[in-house]
């Protein structure tokens, strides 16, 4: 079966500095993959490079065996929450509807079923009651859930998430984790940049360990080991895992 995302020999630079070097990795459908690595390891850049948001020095990226342009509808991306202006005068439901722009069209008035689909996506992250609030009036965790709902509303087969669990409250973390497992169980490929090493084993099936180059890639059991962690993090290993 074709992988949802295949990266081969990807090399990326930012401001003349190599941030990702010769990375090859595959992200199969029906699997939850964590991208882990120390700060500056190029985790977010890898997602951006794969999506063409950064131009690549070398390498090839295939989505469902083809180019991204052929499969955009099947690929959902969730940027870091800090990437947008939360003071923007839109409501929660408006943001979710942005994930459905293929269905809503450019200028047609919204149909009732569009609105219902957006509300369904909000329901999956427990945010239905907030549908008509301005996004700036939400807490950080709630904002993250709205982003998640926008990705869900798209109905994609591949989800690329940049730190979905960063800086969120426990309720949000649980809500997002449930949604991700649900997506995996329905056959979607989920890829998330992840910081919290302690929860990798509980939340993910596979790991791509990165420190500019690939340190390890594969199922959590074989790739997320003290040895690979030491290689990726060096002496900077968090105490909880050093034992």
């Amino acid at each position: 079966m074709t992988d949802a995302l295949t990266i081969s020999g990807l090399t990326l630079s930012h401001d003349g500095l190599r941030v990702v070097e010769d990375v090859s990795a595959r992200f199969p459908a029906g699997q939850l993959t964590a991208i882990v690595g120390p700060n500056g390891a190029g985790k977010s850049s890898l997602l951006k490079g794969a999506l063409g948001l950064m131009s690549a020095d070398a390498g090839e990226v295939r989505f469902f065996g083809g180019a991204l342009a052929e499969h955009r509808a099947r690929v959902a991306y969730m940027p870091q929450r800090a990437a947008v202006d939360w003071d923007f005068p839109v409501r929660v439901i408006d943001v979710v509807l942005m994930g459905m722009h293929r269905q809503t069209g450019f200028w047609r008035p919204l149909a009732a079923h569009n609105r219902n689909a957006a509300l369904t996506a909000l329901d999956r992250v427990g945010m239905t009651d907030f549908a008509t609030r301005q996004i700036g009036a939400l807490s950080g965790g709630q904002q993250q859930r709205v982003f998640m709902a926008r990705a869900l509303a798209q109905g994609a087969d591949l989800y690329l998430l940049d730190e979905p669990f960063a800086g969120v409250d426990a309720a949000t973390e649980a809500a997002i984790a449930t949604v991700l497992q649900d997506l995996r169980d329905r056959g979607a490929a989920v890829v998330a940049v992840h910081h919290d090493l302690a929860s990798v084993a509980a939340r993910f099936d596979r790991v791509l360990m990165l420190n500019r180059r690939v340190i390890a890639e594969g199922p959590v059991a074989s790739s997320f080991t003290p040895e690979t962690l030491r290689q990726a993090y060096g002496g900077a290993l968090p105490p909880i895992l050093a034992a």
Partner: peptide, 11 residues
């Protein structure tokens, strides 16, 4: 305007 990165990925 709200989220240019997401918009770019959406095509």
């Amino acid at each position: 305007s709200f989220d240019p990165i997401h918009a770019a990925v959406a095509g």
